[in-house]
């Protein structure tokens, strides 16, 4: 069952890329193809990121475990689209002019924020294997909390890029606030239940179990 879910999600997550390749071959990228490709990859990075962040709330609300088992894949797709987004910017737009790129990063806050989000994603991608989860133990959870900050940076990156009409970035921001809000509400509730004990270790255990189970099921 979970294997079928995983294969389905894997194929679905590739559609945005396949669509871009199809449009590129069919001359369908519009008047400003470079902008189209960069924006599209950026949008899908953000969508993947929010979907990754939606898995824990989904588990909490629906009381099912499969969301956690596809969470890593979605996280890695976030990194995958972030890499493509950055590559499209550096290659198609800047022609790998490293001086221009570094100036752009230093001088322009929205670029800096986006680039920081990308840098923060790297350690998360590297430590996504089961071996690393085991090796890092308790610290794995702490490290991977960086995804909340990455989410905020990614939305800010989009927000600061927009000229005037902030409706779309606002929509992403609201989804992010909602997804983080569920976590906070849940934590408050479980803290109240446990009393003075912090609930974090409990969460770690279950997440670790799921993460390991994730590997046993494999893709």
């Amino acid at each position: 069952m979970i294997k079928k879910v995983k294969i389905t999600v894997f194929i679905l997550a590739l559609i945005p890329l396949l669509r871009l390749l199809w449009l590129a071959s069919a001359n369908g990228l519009g008047a400003n193809p470079v902008e189209f490709v960069i924006r599209s990859l950026g949008t899908w990075t953000l969508v993947m990121l929010l979907m990754t962040l939606a898995m824990t709330p989904l588990r909490l609300l629906a009381n099912v475990s499969w969301p956690i088992q596809i969470r890593r894949m979605l996280g890695l797709f976030t990194f995958f689209y972030a890499c493509l987004h950055l590559l499209a910017y550096a290659g198609l737009d800047q022609w790998f002019d490293w001086i221009a790129i570094s100036k752009d990063i230093v001088k322009h806050p929205y670029v800096l924020v986006g680039f920081s989000a990308f840098l923060l994603l790297i350690p998360l991608a590297i430590t996504s294997s089961n071996a690393m989860i085991k090796r890092l133990g308790y610290h794995w959870k702490t490290l991977h909390r960086a995804i909340y900050l990455i989410g905020v940076l990614a939305v800010v990156h989009y927000w600061w890029l927009v000229k005037k009409d902030i409706r779309e970035p606002l929509l992403y921001a609201m989804v992010l606030v909602f997804l983080l809000g569920i976590r906070i509400a849940h934590q408050k509730r479980s803290r109240a239940r446990v009393g003075t004990l912090p609930d974090a270790p409990v969460a770690v255990t279950t997440d670790l179990q799921h993460a390991v189970a994730n590997n046993i099921n494999g893709l």
Partner: peptide, 14 residues
Amino acid sequence: RWSQATERRIGDGL
């Protein structure tokens, strides 16, 4: 928020 040193000419392609 962004540089004005260069521009992308519409029609130049991908």
